[in-house]
Design a binder for these strands. Sequence first.
RNA 1: UCCCCGAUAGCUCAAUCGGCAGAGCGAGCGGCUGUUAACCGCUACGUUAGAGGUUCGAGACCUCUUCGGGGAGCCA
Length: 430
Amino acid sequence: MEQAYVRDLARFAGSEVVIKGWLYNKRSSGKILFLEIRDGTGIVQCVAQKKVVGEESFKAADTLPTESSLVVEGKVRADERAPGGFEIDVSSIKVVHVSEEYPITPKEHGAKFLMDHRHLWLRSRKQSAILRVRHAVIKAIRDFFDGRGFICTDAPIFTPAACEGTTTLFKVEYFDQAAYLTQSGQLYAEAAAMALGKVYTFGPTFRAEKSKTRKHLTEFWMVEPEVAWAELEDVMKLAEDFISYIVAFALDRSKEDLKILERDTAKLENVKAPFPRVSYAEAVAQVAGTGTEMKWGEDFGAPQEEALASLYDKPIIVHRWPAAIKAFYMKRDPADPKVALCLDVIGPEGYGELIGGSQREDDLAELTKRIVAENLPMEAFKWYLDLRRFGSVPHGGFGLGLERTVSWICGTKHIRQTIPFPRMLNRLTP
RNA sequence: UCCCCGAUAGCUCAAUCGGCAGAGCGAGCGGCUGUUAACCGCUACGUUAGAGGUUCGAGACCUCUUCGGGGAGCCA
């Protein structure tokens, strides 16, 4: 008899199958027993009758604790009463392992309790759905860049110094010297772009900021494309095409999971390039127009970000920020040296910055000047400056936070549910 | 680092003015032939985060500590 996965049950309607899985929930009624079995692809209700499976088997199943592993055989039958549209008329039940008392019950739990049991919480319907969406988003990211001729050139995780010099880094022992966990693969991506033209890095990044918010993790995944011969306009175009592709892909592939998550997908259907583009100066005026306080030269706080997002129904590209509040490697606008040729993409519905990027400074003298001005260790950037010595070209790119994107697409309140095992301030286990 | 909030049964929470520490879920036992977080009956389950203080009496009030949640800053 063939093993069937719950996701594919429609194909097996009317035939005998084997389901291998875990007991998600059960309801019994004396002589009839409803077993909800999950197998990683979905949950199916299996109907066992005492007269069919026998007294002993019935009793064993009737007292089986949640999350026990079992193998059932039975016939697939379409039934409107069953969640998912199909159920199994059970002919035999084989218990593989009787679970101990399972800590996660069908009732509500607090965030700490669930995170302490993250290794088990992953089994629940919504958490599984989120991880499948995350997988789809990763696939979309790879497909998008592959389709456009980008080469994946991953960056090292151990780095000798800060990329941006601003945020706090995790320090680790690297034999007899200090090293830091990377906060961005960008500088390495720039080098690779000078070799291969269009590249991206995709991997974990680390920020030792003591953030305690719904938008932050200390370890998160970031994808960073970098393109030689690209100017700000090209980077903005790439960013909006990229986000549009990811959202369309997820809407197509993750329909069922988004339904499980009760995501209002109408808001995602809108997300198609082009996105509204506003300069920082325009954005400041628009934010001030909503009554939220904002002056030129200030960075956007959460209230300002939300005020701006509330004016649009798509992600917004805010470009040409004051150079003083942006990273040293961003190229100044020749038309207005007070601003940098950079962009942020602010997600709708309060999900914050999805993307930060820029055209890079390609002039050796300018870049050297900025490294000195910001007191960065020149020695550590020696190789980076070489990129401006040997055939420097205009280039640029951006970084997109995977978990923030998944959080937005899934509509989760907190980013911590969008990575299998989140690392946060106060959270290193499980 | 700063601001706000919280910690009571395995879990989620309640406990009025400071006066016998409770409910639902989960667990155990029993019942029920179509249940949908099934339902019904019974049973067991407490160092009220820790230390100190006020009081005839503290889960509640005060002080400190620990741990956690949300936000600010910073960012993706």
